[in-house]
Protein backbone atom coordinates (compact mmCIF):
# COMPACT_ATOMS: atom_id res chain seq x y z
CA UNK A 1 0.00 0.00 0.00
CA UNK A 2 1.35 3.41 -0.86
CA UNK A 3 1.82 5.92 1.91
CA UNK A 4 -0.07 9.15 2.38
CA UNK A 5 2.24 12.00 1.44
CA UNK A 6 -0.18 14.67 2.59
CA UNK A 7 -3.19 14.64 4.84
CA UNK A 8 -5.19 17.82 5.35
CA UNK A 9 -8.06 17.77 7.83
CA UNK A 10 -10.68 20.49 8.24
CA UNK A 11 -8.61 23.41 6.94
CA UNK A 12 -10.42 26.78 7.09
CA UNK A 13 -9.11 30.26 6.36
CA UNK A 14 -10.85 33.61 6.59
CA UNK A 15 -9.67 37.09 5.66
CA UNK A 16 -11.41 39.32 8.15
CA UNK A 17 -15.01 38.06 8.12
CA UNK A 18 -15.03 36.53 4.68
CA UNK A 19 -14.34 32.78 4.53
CA UNK A 20 -11.85 31.96 1.80
CA UNK A 21 -11.40 28.30 2.52
CA UNK A 22 -14.03 26.30 4.33
CA UNK A 23 -13.41 22.99 6.07
CA UNK A 24 -11.25 21.38 3.39
CA UNK A 25 -10.10 17.82 4.01
CA UNK A 26 -8.26 15.45 1.67
CA UNK A 27 -5.35 13.03 1.44
CA UNK A 28 -2.78 12.63 -1.29
CA UNK A 29 -1.05 9.32 -1.93
CA UNK A 30 2.67 9.29 -2.55
CA UNK A 31 3.76 9.67 -6.17
CA UNK A 32 0.72 11.56 -7.43
CA UNK A 33 0.51 14.66 -9.59
CA UNK A 34 -2.46 16.59 -8.26
CA UNK A 35 -3.98 19.62 -9.98
CA UNK A 36 -5.87 22.11 -7.83
CA UNK A 37 -8.51 23.68 -10.05
CA UNK A 38 -11.22 26.26 -9.44
CA UNK A 39 -12.43 29.72 -10.42
CA UNK A 40 -10.69 32.96 -9.41
CA UNK A 41 -11.03 33.64 -5.71
CA UNK A 42 -11.77 29.98 -5.00
CA UNK A 43 -8.91 29.84 -2.52
CA UNK A 44 -6.48 27.73 -4.59
CA UNK A 45 -3.36 29.68 -3.60
CA UNK A 46 -4.78 30.14 -0.11
CA UNK A 47 -4.97 26.35 0.24
CA UNK A 48 -1.27 26.00 -0.51
CA UNK A 49 -0.26 28.95 1.66
CA UNK A 50 -2.34 27.78 4.60
CA UNK A 51 -0.99 24.24 4.27
CA UNK A 52 2.55 25.64 4.40
CA UNK A 53 1.70 27.89 7.33
CA UNK A 54 2.43 31.06 5.32
CA UNK A 55 -0.92 32.50 6.35
CA UNK A 56 -2.76 31.77 9.58
CA UNK A 57 -5.59 29.26 9.36
CA UNK A 58 -8.66 29.27 11.59
CA UNK A 59 -8.92 25.53 11.97
CA UNK A 60 -7.33 22.45 10.52
CA UNK A 61 -4.34 20.14 10.65
CA UNK A 62 -1.73 19.39 8.05
CA UNK A 63 0.22 16.16 8.17
CA UNK A 64 3.12 15.30 5.91
CA UNK A 65 4.06 11.62 5.78
CA UNK A 66 2.05 10.96 8.90
CA UNK A 67 3.49 13.68 11.11
CA UNK A 68 2.63 17.36 11.67
CA UNK A 69 3.97 19.60 8.90
CA UNK A 70 6.10 21.65 11.29
CA UNK A 71 8.25 18.59 12.04
CA UNK A 72 8.55 17.68 8.37
CA UNK A 73 9.52 20.98 6.71
CA UNK A 74 12.59 19.42 5.10
CA UNK A 75 10.34 17.06 3.14
CA UNK A 76 8.36 19.89 1.60
CA UNK A 77 9.36 22.06 -1.37
CA UNK A 78 7.60 25.22 -2.50
CA UNK A 79 7.37 27.14 -5.75
CA UNK A 80 5.65 30.49 -5.06
CA UNK A 81 3.93 32.56 -7.71
CA UNK A 82 6.48 34.30 -9.87
CA UNK A 83 4.94 37.73 -9.23
CA UNK A 84 5.35 37.33 -5.48
CA UNK A 85 8.92 38.63 -5.53
CA UNK A 86 10.76 41.64 -6.95
CA UNK A 87 12.95 40.34 -9.75
CA UNK A 88 15.07 43.48 -9.63
CA UNK A 89 16.69 42.14 -6.47
CA UNK A 90 20.51 42.25 -6.73
CA UNK A 91 21.28 38.58 -7.23
CA UNK A 92 21.82 36.06 -10.02
CA UNK A 93 20.02 32.87 -11.05
CA UNK A 94 22.51 30.53 -9.36
CA UNK A 95 22.19 32.44 -6.09
CA UNK A 96 18.42 32.07 -6.10
CA UNK A 97 18.71 28.31 -6.64
CA UNK A 98 21.27 28.07 -3.82
CA UNK A 99 18.55 29.51 -1.56
CA UNK A 100 16.82 26.15 -1.91
CA UNK A 101 19.68 24.66 0.13
CA UNK A 102 19.31 27.12 3.02
CA UNK A 103 16.93 24.80 4.88
CA UNK A 104 19.55 22.04 4.86
CA UNK A 105 22.37 24.41 5.76
CA UNK A 106 20.84 25.64 9.00
CA UNK A 107 21.47 28.97 10.64
CA UNK A 108 24.64 31.06 10.19
CA UNK A 109 26.36 28.62 7.83
CA UNK A 110 27.27 30.05 4.46
CA UNK A 111 26.60 28.13 1.24
CA UNK A 112 29.83 26.73 -0.18
CA UNK A 113 31.10 24.74 -3.17
CA UNK A 114 28.80 21.78 -2.43
CA UNK A 115 25.67 23.94 -2.45
CA UNK A 116 26.76 25.64 -5.69
CA UNK A 117 27.35 22.26 -7.30
CA UNK A 118 23.88 21.00 -6.33
CA UNK A 119 22.35 24.29 -7.54
CA UNK A 120 24.12 23.96 -10.90
CA UNK A 121 22.74 20.42 -11.28
CA UNK A 122 19.24 21.71 -10.59
CA UNK A 123 19.69 24.54 -13.10
CA UNK A 124 20.77 21.94 -15.64
CA UNK A 125 17.58 19.93 -15.01
CA UNK A 126 15.48 22.93 -16.07
CA UNK A 127 17.77 23.75 -19.00
CA UNK A 128 19.15 26.96 -17.49
CA UNK A 129 22.86 26.14 -17.16
CA UNK A 130 23.87 28.97 -19.48
CA UNK A 131 22.01 31.52 -17.39
CA UNK A 132 23.57 30.77 -13.99
CA UNK A 133 25.42 34.08 -13.80
CA UNK A 134 22.59 36.14 -15.26
CA UNK A 135 21.12 38.91 -13.11
CA UNK A 136 17.57 37.73 -12.45
CA UNK A 137 15.87 40.84 -13.83
CA UNK A 138 17.39 40.01 -17.21
CA UNK A 139 15.63 36.66 -17.44
CA UNK A 140 12.37 36.21 -19.32
CA UNK A 141 9.22 35.26 -17.43
CA UNK A 142 9.59 31.61 -18.40
CA UNK A 143 13.24 31.58 -17.36
CA UNK A 144 12.37 33.14 -14.01
CA UNK A 145 9.80 30.41 -13.48
CA UNK A 146 12.42 27.76 -14.27
CA UNK A 147 14.78 29.33 -11.75
CA UNK A 148 12.05 29.01 -9.12
CA UNK A 149 11.54 25.36 -10.09
CA UNK A 150 15.28 24.72 -9.87
CA UNK A 151 15.28 26.27 -6.41
CA UNK A 152 12.51 23.87 -5.35
CA UNK A 153 14.50 20.95 -6.79
CA UNK A 154 17.48 22.09 -4.74
CA UNK A 155 15.32 21.67 -1.65
CA UNK A 156 15.41 17.94 -2.44
CA UNK A 157 11.92 17.46 -1.01
CA UNK A 158 9.43 14.57 -1.17
CA UNK A 159 6.31 16.70 -1.48
CA UNK A 160 6.10 19.82 -3.66
CA UNK A 161 3.60 22.64 -3.69
CA UNK A 162 3.60 24.76 -6.85
CA UNK A 163 1.53 27.92 -7.12
CA UNK A 164 0.50 28.59 -10.74
CA UNK A 165 3.82 27.55 -12.34
CA UNK A 166 2.32 27.70 -15.84
CA UNK A 167 1.15 31.32 -15.70
CA UNK A 168 2.74 33.60 -18.26
CA UNK A 169 5.37 31.15 -19.51
CA UNK A 170 6.29 30.34 -23.09
CA UNK A 171 5.54 26.97 -24.71
CA UNK A 172 9.12 25.73 -24.24
CA UNK A 173 8.98 26.39 -20.51
CA UNK A 174 5.56 24.78 -20.19
CA UNK A 175 6.96 21.65 -21.80
CA UNK A 176 10.05 21.77 -19.58
CA UNK A 177 7.89 22.03 -16.48
CA UNK A 178 5.71 19.10 -17.53
CA UNK A 179 8.75 16.93 -18.19
CA UNK A 180 10.05 17.89 -14.78
CA UNK A 181 6.75 16.96 -13.12
CA UNK A 182 6.87 13.55 -14.81
CA UNK A 183 10.47 13.09 -13.69
CA UNK A 184 9.54 13.95 -10.09
CA UNK A 185 6.69 11.47 -10.26
CA UNK A 186 9.04 8.75 -11.51
CA UNK A 187 11.20 9.39 -8.48
CA UNK A 188 8.17 8.75 -6.27
CA UNK A 189 7.67 12.38 -5.33
CA UNK A 190 4.31 14.00 -4.86
CA UNK A 191 3.44 17.30 -6.52
CA UNK A 192 0.44 19.53 -5.87
CA UNK A 193 -0.02 22.19 -8.52
CA UNK A 194 -2.41 25.13 -8.56
CA UNK A 195 -3.58 25.21 -12.14
CA UNK A 196 -5.99 27.41 -14.07
CA UNK A 197 -5.97 26.04 -17.60
CA UNK A 198 -8.83 23.53 -17.77
CA UNK A 199 -7.83 22.43 -21.27
CA UNK A 200 -4.62 20.78 -20.04
CA UNK A 201 -5.80 19.29 -16.75
CA UNK A 202 -6.50 15.81 -18.13
CA UNK A 203 -3.17 15.70 -19.92
CA UNK A 204 -1.04 16.81 -16.96
CA UNK A 205 -2.52 15.45 -13.74
CA UNK A 206 -3.33 12.02 -12.26
CA UNK A 207 -5.73 13.47 -9.73
CA UNK A 208 -7.66 16.67 -9.61
CA UNK A 209 -9.05 18.66 -6.74
CA UNK A 210 -11.94 20.94 -7.61
CA UNK A 211 -12.14 23.84 -5.21
CA UNK A 212 -14.49 26.73 -4.71
CA UNK A 213 -14.07 27.84 -1.10
CA UNK A 214 -15.25 24.35 -0.21
CA UNK A 215 -13.85 21.19 -1.68
CA UNK A 216 -16.23 20.30 -4.50
CA UNK A 217 -14.72 17.08 -5.80
CA UNK A 218 -11.48 15.18 -5.48
CA UNK A 219 -10.22 11.98 -7.04
CA UNK A 220 -8.65 10.49 -10.14
CA UNK A 221 -8.87 12.91 -13.03
CA UNK A 222 -10.89 10.56 -15.23
CA UNK A 223 -13.49 10.08 -12.48
CA UNK A 224 -13.75 13.63 -11.18
CA UNK A 225 -13.04 15.92 -14.13
CA UNK A 226 -16.59 15.75 -15.47
CA UNK A 227 -18.84 18.40 -16.86
CA UNK A 228 -21.28 18.09 -13.97
CA UNK A 229 -18.54 18.57 -11.38
CA UNK A 230 -17.03 21.50 -13.28
CA UNK A 231 -20.39 23.20 -13.57
CA UNK A 232 -20.92 22.72 -9.89
CA UNK A 233 -17.50 24.18 -9.09
CA UNK A 234 -17.53 27.10 -11.49
CA UNK A 235 -21.23 27.92 -11.21
CA UNK A 236 -22.44 29.60 -14.35
CA UNK A 237 -19.03 30.90 -15.33
CA UNK A 238 -18.16 28.00 -17.56
CA UNK A 239 -19.85 28.98 -20.79
CA UNK A 240 -16.63 28.65 -22.75
CA UNK A 241 -16.37 24.96 -21.86
CA UNK A 242 -19.67 24.21 -23.57
CA UNK A 243 -18.76 26.35 -26.50
CA UNK A 244 -15.38 24.78 -27.12
CA UNK A 245 -16.77 21.29 -26.57
CA UNK A 246 -13.93 20.08 -24.42
CA UNK A 247 -14.09 16.34 -24.60
CA UNK A 248 -15.24 15.34 -21.17
Amino acid sequence: MTKNALHIEGLSVAYQKKPVLCNVSFEVKEGQLVGVVGPNGAGKSTLIKAALGLIPSLTGQVQVYGRPYKQQRRLVGYVPQRESVDWDFPTNALDVVVMGRYGHLGWFRRPGAKEKRIAMECLAKVGMTDYADRQISQLSGGQQQRVFLARALAQDAQLYFMDEPFVGVDAATEKAIIQLLQELKRQGKTVIVVHHDLATVEEYFDSVLLLNVELRAYGLTRDVFTRTNLHQTYGGKLAFLDREKVSL
Binding site: Y78, P80, V85, Y102
Partner: peptide, 9 residues
Protein backbone atom coordinates in the same frame (compact mmCIF):
# COMPACT_ATOMS: atom_id res chain seq x y z
CA UNK B 1 14.05 38.60 -1.53
CA UNK B 2 11.28 36.08 -0.86
CA UNK B 3 9.74 36.20 2.63
CA UNK B 4 7.14 33.56 1.68
CA UNK B 5 9.79 31.01 0.76
CA UNK B 6 11.78 31.89 3.88
CA UNK B 7 8.72 31.19 5.97
CA UNK B 8 8.22 27.88 4.18
CA UNK B 9 11.75 26.88 5.22
Amino acid sequence: FDPGFARGL
